[in-house]
Computed example of a mutant assay.
Amino acid sequence: MRSRARTNSKHRGAKMSREFCPARIRHLIVVALIILGIAEARAQSQESSSRPPKQAGRMQSKQNVPAPNTPSDPANAKSTYVIGPGDLLAINVLHEPEVSEKVSVRMDGKITMPLVGEIQASGMMPDSLQAAIAEKLHEFIKDAEVTVVVEEMKSRQFSVMGEVQHPGSFPLLRPTRVLDALAQAGGFRDFARVTKIHVLRRTPQGTTVTLPFNYKQVTQGKNDSQNIELQAGDTVIVP
Rank of each mutant, 00 (worst) to 15 (best):
I83G: 04
K15D: 00
T176I: 07
C21Q: 11
E135D: 13
I237E: 00
D87H: 10
T176D: 03
N92T: 14
F191V: 10
P74M: 00
M125D: 04
F158C: 04
L179N: 09
K102E: 11
V199C: 10
S48T: 12
V160F: 06
K222Y: 08
Q205G: 02
S72R: 15
V178A: 01
S72F: 14
V236W: 03
H198N: 10
G162W: 00
R12D: 03
A121F: 11
S49N: 11
R2I: 09
R202M: 12
V31Y: 05
D190H: 05
G123T: 12
E40L: 13
V105N: 03
F213R: 01
V199D: 08
E152K: 14
A192N: 06
G109D: 02
N92D: 10
I228D: 00
G13P: 00
D108W: 01
S3H: 06
V146M: 08
G86R: 11
A90P: 01
K78I: 11
P53K: 11
P239N: 14
P74G: 01
S104T: 13
R177A: 11
K216W: 03
A90M: 03
K154M: 12
K62Y: 10
V218E: 02
G86Q: 08
M107W: 01
A23N: 12
V160Y: 06
K78Q: 12
M107S: 10
D180M: 03
I197C: 07
Q120H: 04
T195A: 05
G86Y: 09
I237K: 03
H166S: 09
N76Y: 11
A185Y: 09
V199P: 07
T203H: 06
I111E: 05
N214M: 01
I197S: 03
S50K: 15
D234T: 06
R42T: 07
R174K: 15
P53Y: 07
T112K: 10
P22E: 06
E151G: 08
K102D: 09
K62I: 14
M125N: 09
S169C: 04
G84C: 13
I119H: 11
T80M: 13
